[in-house]
């Protein structure tokens, strides 16, 4: 005789199998990708293909480094990710704070304008945006890469929501002490929205690191490419270089995997509140 507990477990079995199936659908390709990076070039192209490496070799990584300016790509990705995100969090917090805590003429109109920019997909403005940036003399520069990505309506919106719920007393106490308005924002209010800031920082770094379109448009020099667009151009032009392609993909994934392990909570929270684009 099966106890009631056992019956319930048995009922749960098909569900577990289904969930495991989808988990394997994600994990197995990723494991194959990682395993393939340490295969010698010969093993990659032999038939039948192997799943786990029979021999160990770092040739793919060496070839990646010699074929591409991979260190430049990594450097540019790091610069792009940090230099867009950190100032962005600051200015969006400042704006969100202003919209949340001050009453001023034109506030609702300006906020609607901000929200309206959220309705216009980047893909619609990319051609004219490219022309604007090019005419400012910013083609192939970090400025051109970074400046258009600093102000994001969704961040302003999230920041505003975070600041709205802070109690009035905190602000009043600060003003009582004769603190400047910026000091009030910087020293008293900003620390209150730390979780939102971290969420935006992490989502921002992830988004910029993986951004393909804008770096693709606004950089031409191989030294200015980021990992995402440099690798995409590489795989597009020369698909027979499998080893370096494997290695490049792994180089692009590993830092984000580390970020995910460190900040999973923030990824999930940010996704639920903002509906992160994908």
């Amino acid at each position: 005789m099966l106890s009631r507990k056992h019956v319930q477990r048995l009922k749960r079995l098909p569900i577990l199998l289904l969930l495991t199936f989808f988990a394997l659908l994600i994990l197995v390709p990723v494991i194959w990708l990682f395993a393939s990076t340490v295969k010698p070039a010969k093993e990659i192209i032999t038939y039948p293909p192997s799943f786990f490496p029979k021999q160990f070799s770092l040739a793919s990584f060496e070839r990646l480094a010699s074929r591409l300016k991979i260190l430049d790509y990594i450097k540019n990705s790091v610069i792009y990710a940090l230099a867009t995100t950190i100032p962005s969090v600051f200015i969006c917090a400042l704006a969100g704070y202003s919209f949340a805590r001050y009453e001023f003429r034109g506030r609702s109109v300006l906020f609607i304008v901000v929200l309206a920019t959220m309705m216009i997909p980047f893909q619609v403005t990319m051609i004219p945006l490219f022309l604007v940036v090019k005419n400012m003399g910013l083609y192939d520069t970090y400025g051109g890469l970074i400046l258009p990505k600093l102000a994001a309506a969704i961040s302003i919106f999230m920041m505003r929501s975070a600041f709205v719920s802070i109690p009035r007393e905190l602000e009043e106490a600060g003003r009582m002490d004769g603190i400047s308005e910026f000091g009030l924002f910087w020293k008293i209010m900003l620390p209150q929205v730390k979780p939102t800031m971290i969420t935006m920082l992490i989502l921002g770094i992830n988004g910029a690191w993986n951004d393909l379109m804008w770096p693709l448009l606004v950089t031409g020099d191989t030294r200015m490419r980021t990992l995402a667009n440099g690798l995409a151009l590489f795989i597009g032009s020369d698909t027979t270089e499998y080893g370096p392609a494997f290695a490049g993909a792994v180089v692009s994934i590993v830092p984000m995997l580390a970020l995910y392990i460190f900040g999973q909570k923030y990824f999930v929270e940010g996704t639920v509140t903002s509906g992160l684009k994908g």
């Binding site: 969930l19 989808f22 988990a23 994600i26 994990l27 390709p29 990723v30 194959w32 990708l33 393939s36 990659i44 192209i45 038939y47 293909p49 992830n206 690191w209 993986n210 393909l212 990992l227 995402a228 667009n229 690798l231 995409a232 795989i235 698909t239 499998y242 392609a245 494997f246 490049g248 993909a249 792994v250 692009s252 994934i253 984000m256 995997l257 970020l259 995910y260 999973q264 990824f267 999930v268 996704t271 992160l276 994908g278």
Partner: peptide, 28 residues
């Protein structure tokens, strides 16, 4: 399970594109 299902989101389209392109490659 949730943590695993979320994983592909953090990877770039470039990396996942390369990965699937090679897994489904007609030769390798």
């Amino acid at each position: 399970f949730r943590a695993v299902y979320f994983m592909p989101i953090i990877c770039s389209a470039t990396a996942t594109g390369i990965m699937w392109k090679l897994i489904l490659h007609s030769n390798v």
